[in-house]
Amino acid sequence: MSPAIEVANLSTRFGDYWVHRDLNLSVQRGEILALVGGSGSGKTTLLRQMIGLLHPTQGEIRLFGEPLFDGNVERERNLRRRFGMLFQYGALFSAFNVFQNIAFPLRELRTLDEDLIHELVMLKLAMVELLPRHAWLMPAELSGGMVKRVALARALAMEPELLLLDEPTAGLDPDRSESFVRLIRMLGEQLGLTVVLVTHDLDTLAALASRVAVLAEQRILALGTVDDIMKVDHPFIRNFFCCDRAQRALQNRICGECP
């Protein structure tokens, strides 16, 4: 089976500045891959290129073995329905309530009946651990953690095989962020999702990622499990993983796993 995402010889240029040069990355089905890197290293850019919001300057990206852009509108639309994206600030439609937000992609299919959509929305709400009465709230009335949950429910509405998360825990307090991470991991296992996440947060990284890709110097500097990555001797990786805070986060993970 072809990998979920395949990035081949990707180069991106903003003005005179090369963000990526000859970048190669392949995301296997069913894995949870974390993209890490310093500010401005092009993590979010890469994520946006994977879902076709940005065109790479050179190179190609294939999702499930199919190219993102080839001019066939119908096929591109169907391909887009196979992944869900959780934006950093949720990107909920502010004029719609929670129910309408989650129902929106389903209604766009124009074939499902309202009753089924209602049940599916309620199921998705329950999956992200929200209560049915939350369905009638407006996005402005939600707390930060609830916004993320609703956005996740909307990303899952189309039953995607691939889920992309941009800073899933940014702006959440440690308690909320921990329960959100738990939720993502649980859903990932239940639904057999492939997950790609961009994060700065080591706790999130340690708790979720099955593999880590380090983005620096315009390419993928290292790719492997957290333990593999920590063995790589590079100033960025040393800084990122080996300060006290990082050690503590990774220590917690090990302790968390062996009660």
Binding site: R81, R82, L109, T111, L112, D113, M158, E159
Partner: peptide, 14 residues
């Protein structure tokens, strides 16, 4: 039996 395959023929199957 998944959304993308069901949606085009939902009415008939239901």
């Amino acid at each position: 039996w998944k959304l993308m395959a069901l949606a085009p023929q939902y009415g008939r199957l239901a």
